[in-house]
């Protein structure tokens, strides 16, 4: 019976007759729930232009919480490191942009259309450059596999994606873009405070190791960072990282399965560190948090 009601509701909704549903005694809450299902089913895949807008909204939200560091050397360093990694992902065509966010919270983020961020707090904690390369490569994998676009589409109950498609179709100017901006910003807030599925994180760990190793870095950089997280469970500044990721123990177990001893062969000719990393880290340690 429930299925029949749902199916009927979908048909009625599709024809735009929500008023008839209300008259039939179906609550707004139910209508919205069904609309959300219908929306997911009907949503066509996003275009590259739409993904650029989603990525921009997500980056704008993250940098609205805390800005980039005001430090040219740090910013150039992360862009050169990321630029080198990009050449070994098979997706050097993506519009990659890298940044260090001036926050003491320990975390890293990716957003659609090539945005990758690490926090100042993360730079302070890492042991060497290959560990940073592992984290950046993990974030790049999220971009390449479109994890955020796919997850945001699933989470989108307010029609942000539909607005996006509508305004894109009209190729509207600023006015059209504005219509989608707020729902997108809300969706991004929801997305980045709840995190991706575990499977996406395991996938990004696996690919992060591969990309960093291809680029000549020590394959064990990322596993060492996850070990570091394990030893920091419950520490201040790690809260969001822990609440949005599978446990470090589970991540290591998954990495262990895919890495085995297959990567040991690459260890000998790998780069673990560079003096520039320590210089950047010192700058990160000295840098004050931005005032609210």
């Amino acid at each position: 019976m429930k299925k029949i009601i749902l199916a009927t509701a979908l048909v009625v909704l599709a024809s735009g007759c929500t008023e008839q549903l209300r008259r039939a005694g179906i609550t707004d809450e139910n209508i919205n729930a069904v609309a959300s299902v219908a929306g997911t089913l009907n949503k066509p895949d996003t275009t590259p232009a739409e993904e650029a807008r989603i990525g921009h909204a997500a980056a704008s939200m993250l940098l609205g919480a805390a800005p980039l560091v005001n430090d040219q050397e740090m910013m150039q360093y992360i862009n050169q490191l990321g630029g080198w990694l990009a050449r070994h992902t098979g997706r050097n065509d993506i519009n990659w942009r890298f940044g260090v966010i001036n926050s003491s919270n320990v975390n890293a983020f990716a957003a659609p259309d090539g945005y990758v961020f690490v926090t100042k707090g993360l730079l302070r904690e890492l042991g060497n450059e290959s560990e940073l390369a592992g984290v950046v490569a993990h974030e790049m994998a999220h971009v390449i596999k479109r994890h955020y676009v796919i997850a945001m589409r699933k989470k989108d109950t307010s029609g942000a994606f539909a607005n996006l498609a509508a305004t894109s179709a009209r190729s509207a100017g600023v006015k059209g873009a504005d219509l989608a901006a707020e729902p997108l910003a809300n969706l991004a807030q929801n997305m980045y405070s709840s995190g991706l599925d575990k499977g996406d994180e395991y996938d990004a760990d696996r690919l992060g190791v591969i990309y960093a190793t291809r680029a000549g870095y020590d394959p064990y950089g990322l596993p060492r960072v996850i070990n570091l997280y394990a030893s920091k469970a419950g520490s201040s500044g790690f809260e969001l990282l822990f609440s949005t990721h599978p446990s470090p123990q589970d991540r290591l177990q998954q990495l262990d399965k895919v890495m085995g001893e297959r990567f040991a062969a690459y260890e000998a000719n790998s780069v673990i560190d560079n003096a520039a990393f320590k210089r950047i880290q010192t700058r990160a340690i000295k840098l004050a948090d931005p005032k609210r």
Binding site: A57, S60, M61, L62, G64, A65, A66, P67, I101, N102, S103, S104, N105, N107, T119, A181, A185, Q189, Y192, S193, E239, L240, S243, D289, P290, K291, R292
Partner: peptide, 14 residues
């Protein structure tokens, strides 16, 4: 100070 906690994200302005 600004940061990237859950609360910071909730109050973020683009």
């Amino acid at each position: 100070v600004k940061g990237l906690s859950k609360e910071d994200i909730a109050r973020s302005q683009p």
